[in-house]
Design a protein around this nucleic acid. Structure first.
Lengths: 238, 238
DNA sequence: GGCTATTCTTGCTGCAGATCAATGCTGCAC
DNA sequence: GTGCAGCATTGATCTGCAGCAAGAATAGCC
């Protein structure tokens, strides 16, 4: 595996805090890392791996319909462990990068082996899996019941929880959009135009503000109202 | 646990074909079943269990927003093993019955124990889990990208795969709607009226027909077109 | 059998978001 | 610096689903 110290400063922080191999003994760790490979990807790249740790960036499972409609079924962010072995590969899903990303592709068998020998590892991974599954259900609820405005508020909170997004903005007072409008739209089942208009509505409702110096960053002005909105309570009346 | 032979004929079929305990040794099986409980539920009932085997019927994970909007996040059918321990209970999800259902509530710890001692069991359960996760992703794709008509076609196929639905209609030429319009609507993010109208459109397009003798049953007239529609290819032009 | 409650269907209207099209903005290459 | 490509925004129009409400069908019950 490449020397990970080649990575940028933020990589190192993430690598150390996110790698799930604490407690692995030397033998298993070596086996796991021997078959591992560091991958750098930029938006649009297809990711071949089906077991990987994502350090920073954003990946998505993408599906396309005949007529070009595209869905982003799931989003992954820094700290996620992906295991798509029995899930997506057979179906029509593809794993693509949605931003500049750094990931470590692992060998599935080696990981299984390591899990078997280290129950802690297995536990922390199944924790992550349950978390991802929970996120999927949240997403279903968003898509099925919420208005576009509420969906947008919901996804903004989702971004705010991403460790690598948070790292660039401790405190979570503002947010740099980690992926394109188009990708947000395909994730939320709407159109980029609608995202744009919805952001504007949030702005004129006083919930967020744009930042002069840095386009593509928003500042939260009223997190409680945002949360209510994201949970389906509509805009505060005024 | 109750004597399972008290159940109706179809129960027995399902119990035998669906129970996942083949290969469990006597000790584990006993432990598993001692803490188990047969539950009969009808539509609207709240299910308290969070680990269970569903023999027949339909359950759903339901969430409600402030203003009464309701979502059915996931559907379970005969043959499913539910494990909501770390997933839904903490969030705002409730498990409810959507039809007359028969299920076996299990003790989570006993199941974990059994899995540990019987790798086959664990494998078959993680298979089921992966299957359910795949269904969730399909559902996300439906909600995000497809038209109401396509979503309906898609859910009809989903129903057709349910073992207990199939059992009442070998060959899958027709389909008895296993849940109410309202519940289909809440699952697909639409309104019951729209379901009704969409069914009518499928009918006038020649894809399905109603059956005189039995309301609430539809017959498939053109499965290939249905499948294309469900996959997002639109209605066949004519 | 007839009664009631629930579910399903159908008609009509309004509006939110898709669509189409044009313009503005940002970052990058040269 | 200039030019270009990709992305984001804004505007105008159109369509399809939601919303509401009335009626039909169905199931359950005495």
């Amino acid at each position: 595996m490449d020397d990970i110290s080649l990575a940028e400063p933020q990589d190192v922080m993430n690598v150390q805090s996110l790698a799930p191999w604490d407690g692995l003994d030397r033998k298993n760790l070596t086996a796991l890392l021997t078959a591992a490979e560091i991958i750098r990807a930029k938006r649009g790249d297809d990711i071949g791996a089906d077991v990987a740790i994502l350090f920073y960036g954003a990946l998505g499972v993408e599906r396309s319909l005949f007529d070009g409609r595209r869905v982003l079924v799931t989003l992954f962010h820094g700290g996620d462990l992906l295991d798509l072995r029995r899930e997506e590969r057979q179906r029509q899903g593809r794993l693509v990068s949605l931003a500049d990303s750094l990931l470590l592709s692992l060998d599935g068998d080696a990981l299984d082996q390591a899990i078997e020998e280290c129950p802690n590892l297995g536990l922390s991974l199944s924790q992550k899996a349950a978390d991802q599954s929970g996120r999927q259900r949240d997403h279903i609820a968003d898509l099925a019941a919420k208005t576009p405005l509420e969906r947008l508020a919901s996804v903004l909170f989702e971004f705010r929880r991403w460790p690598d997004v948070l790292a660039l903005d401790p405190g979570g007072e503002s947010l740099r959009m980690p992926i394109l409008r188009k990708d947000i739209a395909d994730y939320l089942g709407m159109k980029p135009e609608t995202i744009s208009r919805a952001l504007k509505r949030l702005q004129s409702a006083g919930l967020i503000a744009t930042i002069r110096e840095e386009a593509n960053r928003i500042r939260f002005l009223d997190l409680p109202s945002m949360r209510r909105l994201a949970n389906g309570a509509g805009l505060p009346k005024r």
